[in-house]
Design a protein around this nucleic acid. Sequence first.
DNA 1: CAGAAAATGATATATTATAACATTTCATCA
DNA 2: TGATGAAATGTTATAATATATCATTTTCTG
Lengths: 158, 158
Amino acid sequence: MSDLFPKKGHDHDRCVNSALKQAEKVCMEENARFTDMRRKVFTLIWQSHKAVTAYELLDALTSEGQRVQPPTVYRALEFLTDLGLVHRIESLNAYFGCDRPDCEHLGQYFICTQCGRVAEAVNEDMSNAVLKAAAQVGFSIQATTVEIKGLCHDCATH
Amino acid sequence: MSDLFPKKGHDHDRCVNSALKQAEKVCMEENARFTDMRRKVFTLIWQSHKAVTAYELLDALTSEGQRVQPPTVYRALEFLTDLGLVHRIESLNAYFGCDRPDCEHLGQYFICTQCGRVAEAVNEDMSNAVLKAAAQVGFSIQATTVEIKGLCHDCATH
DNA sequence: CAGAAAATGATATATTATAACATTTCATCA
DNA sequence: TGATGAAATGTTATAATATATCATTTTCTG
């Protein structure tokens, strides 16, 4: 059985840093500015193994100093999701960092209802099934939402 | 190519009536009351080919007479979704009638961003791919959300 | 019919998200 | 290099979605 979540002991700070590097690269390529606010929001999202809501981000940003307003956060989120650096989890109204911002993909999300952790999968079987089903009914896809809720292996067995 | 939506000329009132019959049957079996309010909400949802928001339901119910309050509608929606008579479309914050309330299934939803129509699919390829992917990572599924947005064949070609 | 359980009504408020306009920051080039 | 226009952010207000809580009514059961 492959692991849904990173093994214990993995260096998450390093993941976050590597994600930041990737984000910088994507922004560079797209001629988009990775501003301070966008970087802060991106980092906060990446530091969490759970999906993060807009107002959690607001609170986190506000405790750092002066009051940040909702539009500020929502704009950063829009920027990041448009570039594919962050995904919105529709069933949670929350946001999660994308592992693979550099390639087009249909992502699928596993969400543990016990521990709250989220994991992105890029599973060809699922993607292909969706693409095939759409083709069968003449539907041209713009976006897909595949969110799977349940118990992760850790929570199911402990 | 199979049809995503009912053919023109199909008798929608008859569909709604048949859905009502099914709903009654399901409620009977579950020993649940299909009250007046629940029936109204169910009917309003079924009369629409689009997903319907809670506040659209509120407005529709209110115009019929005295003011209906949000909890009333949300309770009816909770009842209907718990029984599987209605599905929530997460990416729209809206609700859609279920064709097959009598059998357990993982539903998938096609949502046309042009005309707003929604269609439920119960596609084995997609369901199996999801089940298999979950099994591979030791994830035990409680609920799935598969929502596919894009252009239906009609909108893409006209 | 009494009493309990279920459903609905009513009020208030929490949570999520956006509209509109003002100000600041930043890249560009004259 | 500093004027200028575009992009980003700040600010205020409000819209849209959802729930908590307690009161009342309806329905089921004995």
